[in-house]
C-alpha cells in the first residue's frame, strides 16, 4: 500500500489573523503553524492503513523552506518520507499541478488530503488533482476501509452520508471521524530527523488567480444582555430590532 498524503502548513486554529504591507501580506508575527487539521486526519488514517497493510506513506507539501518543521512533524507522526515542492503555494491550480506531477512518478494506490485547507478554505485541490491524474476523487470522506484493490468509504452529503464502493487508486479529501489525530511520540520525533525529506523545484508555474488585497471583517458591536427572567425582552429585540422573527 503506497500512500501519498498532501499536507498544508497553516496558522494554528486559535491564531489572531492580521495583515501587513498595506493589507497585502499575512502577518506571521506570533503565529504558530500546524499541519492543517483535516490533513492531520488524512495522515492519521494513512499511517493506520500502512500499519495494517504494510507499504509506505509519503507526505508532500508545496511550500517554502519555513514549512519544514511542519513536514518533520508529519514524519514524526509516522510518515516514511517527505517531499517539499519549493514554492509559495500561490493558488489551488498551481498546487494541484505540483502534486499531480509528483504523483505521476510515484505509483500511489491512494492520494489522501484534507477536505479543505484552513487558510484559504478552497476545498478544491482534491478535485483538481483527481482530474489532472484521470482518477476518481471523493470529498468529504468520513471513513475509509481497504479490501484488496477495492475500498469502501463514506462521504458526507448534506443532512447525512452515503457509502461508496470504489476501486483503487483514487483521491480522497478527508475529515473526521476517519481517524483520531495522532500525537508524535519521542521515538517518532527522533526518527523523523533522519527520514528523507526531498526538496524539488516546481515543474509548471501556471496560476489562474492572484490575491490583490486582504481585508478583515467589520468589528462586532457590543452584546446586549437580557435578564433570564425577562425572555420576552429578547423576543421583542429579535422581532423589532434585528427583525429576524
Amino acid at each position: 500500500m503506497n500512500i501519498l498524503v498532501c499536507i498544508t502548513h497553516v496558522p494554528d486554529t486559535t491564531s489572531r489573523i492580521a495583515f501587513t504591507d498595506n493589507n497585502t501580506q499575512f502577518d506571521k508575527n506570533g503565529v504558530q503553524f500546524i499541519i492543517g487539521p483535516y490533513d492531520d486526519y488524512a495522515l492519521a488514517r494513512a499511517v493506520e492503513l500502512r500499519e495494517a497493510n504494510g507499504g509506505k506513506v509519503t507526505v508532500i507539501n508545496v511550500g517554502e523552506a519555513e514549512t519544514e518543521p511542519t513536514i518533520r512533524k508529519a514524519l514524526a507522526i509516522g510518515a516514511d518520507e517527505a517531499v517539499r515542492v519549493n514554492a509559495f503555494p500561490s493558488d489551488s491550480f498551481f498546487v494541484a499541478n505540483q502534486i499531480a506531477e509528483h504523483a505521476k512518478g510515484g505509483d500511489y494506490d491512494l492520494i489522501l488530503m484534507g477536505r479543505e485547507s484552513i487558510d484559504f478554505n478552497g476545498g478544491m485541490v482534491h478535485g483538481m488533482v483527481g482530474e489532472l491524474l484521470g482518477l476518481p476523487s471523493f470529498s468529504p470522506v468520513m471513513s475509509l476501509e481497504i479490501n484488496g484493490d477495492k475500498a469502501s468509504l463514506s462521504r458526507e452529503i448534506e443532512g447525512g452520508k452515503e457509502k461508496l464502493e470504489v476501486s483503487l487508486p483514487f483521491v480522497a479529501g478527508c475529515q473526521e471521524p476517519i481517524a483520531e489525530w495522532k500525537i508524535p511520540n519521542m521515538r517518532g520525533i527522533m526518527s523523523a530527523r533522519t527520514k528523507p525529506l526531498n526538496v524539488v523545484e516546481p515543474t509548471d508555474n501556471t496560476t489562474k488567480t492572484a490575491v490583490s488585497a486582504y481585508e478583515l471583517p467589520p468589528a462586532k458591536g457590543a452584546v446586549k444582555m437580557v435578564d433570564k427572567d425577562n425572555v420576552e425582552e429578547l423576543v421583542s429585540l429579535l422581532k423589532n430590532e434585528a427583525k429576524v422573527l
Binding site: T13, F120, N121, Y214
Partner: peptide, 16 residues
C-alpha cells in the same frame, strides 16, 4: 471577494 481563514478575513482575488 473570498472568505478565508474560516471567516476571519477576506481576500480580493482576481480570476485570470
Amino acid at each position: 471577494k473570498r472568505s478565508i481563514y474560516t471567516g476571519k478575513a477576506f481576500a480580493n482575488v482576481s480570476l485570470d
